[in-house]
Design a protein around this nucleic acid. Structure first.
Lengths: 350, 350
DNA sequence: GAATGCTGTGAAAACGTTTTCAGCTTGTGA
DNA sequence: TCACAAGCTGAAAACGTTTTCACAGCATTC
């Protein structure tokens, strides 16, 4: 069978935007040029005569050729892949950030390799090892329990950006919104509504964000001349179950309160349910405010008042920073602000 | 400077579970063997004398060597990467599946490359092209709008498994739970509670699952001798906003109802809010049942009665099927069952 | 009219592995 | 003592690109 025939048949069948198994060598052959020339045209890395260019372009089209990224990566020493260490891929909190990361990444030709550390330092380190073995060009770490020194040491091998921590090294940057201000904002809102006995369900204490939000809470209290009452602060775990337990504990203590500031939205959901169980109405009897503004907070009953963290934007920002780090271009980035989102779980204290 | 010194210094500094830039050639050199031998030890692909083995293992340890996966992939023609086409990485529905996929994948040495199609056939195809350029060894498609024929055609290039569709080709498999049974289960539960006027908020009609759940609803009605009333069925969009609108529409129609079967949990959340807004109590005035059993449904107020889809398990199953497809091992898999989860949004009709 | 510079191109080396092939030891049986 | 297998090992090719280097052709320049 003549060669032209089988080639035509193949070209016909594969009319999708799909790589066939063709290689640059086959393209070169079909176009009557050398592989070098094909490569040059592919990357626009040198001038090529129009005549050959057209021949090559035709061959590329006919053979439905797409360069093998694996080979490109190996040669260039760039995998065009970014490792993302999240804690739990199914956590609503990380999700939105992930989305922002994905959006920003695909728009610059990178793809994310997402792994979960499950809030476990050892596992996190292991997963990072995995990412390194795959030669990712950079790593994004979404909080977690790895200590900062370790991360900075890791960053000698590959640039890293992280959230929820605070450090600054040549190849490692972190971004962290002003959580104290956020805690202040939330508490202040409650105070403005006339509340005086405001409970706080704290987040995991090993977590910077948690201690900062608590600090913001205390500062707002202080500024308003309200005495800080330790018995109104109860431990949560950043998740629904913790919020649920916390309210139970609070009620048990018998310390009266008219408002609750939950360390994050998930905690607030749990708190909301505990309140419901006890027949305590929100916001009529008790006001409730969360933190994060997860998408779901728009549809709780009633919709949750909260402090908005622009997670999607943070995802994009992380990518921008990492991109700059990879390209070795220093750059300054403006942090987005936390904003109070008033919905229906807070109301005036009679 | 003597070579030994710099090498020792380097080995010292990198004491983490981290690949240095060392290559198999350097390891070979350090151990006084050929690269072939190192490779053989790495993969256990041939017998090697104990003496050399130990020397190589020491060298690997000293140099902190990890093979470059990119190079391995190129040579072996296997990227050890699976492409996952989700629709929105931040959708609670896909998340849980993603988690199952990730768990199963990492346990067999694969890593997921996750991309989002955003419910847009063109975008989906484009993303799949991206995955192919990176030479993924298989693709998992989570529903979406790509038509089955296209997917089957794609599967000539790479094995594919998918959810929410129904086809069976040599290199493409789909899994789909019995959604009719699920719809039946939900409706039946309402009927068992004494409800007769049961509304249904349907999902996107282009979606197989949506039409099946509606079919299940009709069948349950019929089996109970209740006439199907088209005015009790209203269109949703599988998201909260749709549920919200749907209830508004239903109320506007003036058609009385005592229970609502929402096509999925997100729809139910929206419906719940709309009901709340109108002062209609759940479940006292109206019973509400969802579908999926998202994690959040445990913490809505009140916790949502729903039909559980074991998404995590499905994720694992998808991986198992794909793995079998890649290895060319035919295999049969048992589908998990849908289960009714009775919580607090449904109650007896007085 | 020779030296110079530019432009376009191909050959070949390189990226870091794996794998084939062949060769070298050694031990075995005739 | 010799052929022959068996067991280890290294050289070299290969995977599919990119990139360096060299060179041919051709137009400038003095």
């Amino acid at each position: 069978m003549p060669d032209t025939n089988s080639k035509k048949a193949q070209a016909n069948k594969v009319k999708d935007p799909f790589p066939s198994g063709a290689t640059v060598v086959q393209v070169a052959e079909a176009a009557g040029v050398s592989p070098s020339t094909v490569s040059r045209i592919l990357n626009g890395s040198a001038r090529v005569s129009d005549e050959k260019r057209q021949a090559v372009e035709k061959a590329i089209f006919d053979l439905n050729f797409k360069p093998n990224q694996l080979a490109q990566s190996l040669k260039r020493g760039l995998s065009m892949t970014i490792g993302v260490l999240t804690q739990a891929i199914d956590s609503p909190f990380f999700n939105e950030t992930l989305r922002g990361i994905e959006d920003a990444l695909t728009s610059i030709g990178y793809a994310p390799l997402i792994v979960s550390g499950n809030w476990n330092a050892r596992e996190e380190a292991e997963r990072i090892g995995l990412l390194m073995a795959r030669r990712v060009d950079g790593i994004i770490i979404l909080t977690g329990h790895l200590d900062d020194d370790t991360i900075i040491r890791f960053s000698e091998h590959v640039p890293i950006v992280a959230t929820g921590r605070e450090f600054d090294a040549p190849r490692a940057r972190s971004i962290r919104l002003d959580q104290v201000a956020g805690g202040y904002l939330a508490t202040r809102h409650l105070i403005d509504q006339g509340h005086r006995r405001i409970a706080h369900i704290a987040g995991i204490t090993a977590h910077l964000d948690a201690v900062d939000r608590l600090a913001g809470y205390r500062k707002a209290l202080e500024d308003a001349g309200i005495a800080y009452e330790p018995r109104l602060v109860v431990q949560g775990d950043f998740r629904e179950a913790g919020g649920l337990m916390a309210i139970a504990q609070l009620l048990e203590r018998g310390e009266p309160f008219t408002a609750v500031f939950a360390a994050n939205d998930q905690t607030a959901y749990g708190a909301r349910l505990a309140l419901y169980r006890k027949g305590i109405r929100v916001p009529d009897d008790v006001s409730l405010i969360g933190f994060d503004d997860l998408p779901a907070s728009l549809y709780t009953t009633p919709p949750l008042t909260t402090v908005r963290q622009p997670m999607h934007e943070i995802g994009r920002l992380l990518v921008d920073m990492l991109h700059a780090l990879i390209a070795n271009k220093p750059a300054r980035f403006a942090l987005p602000e936390l904003k109070l989102v008033i919905r229906e779980t807070t109301s005036w204290q009679r």
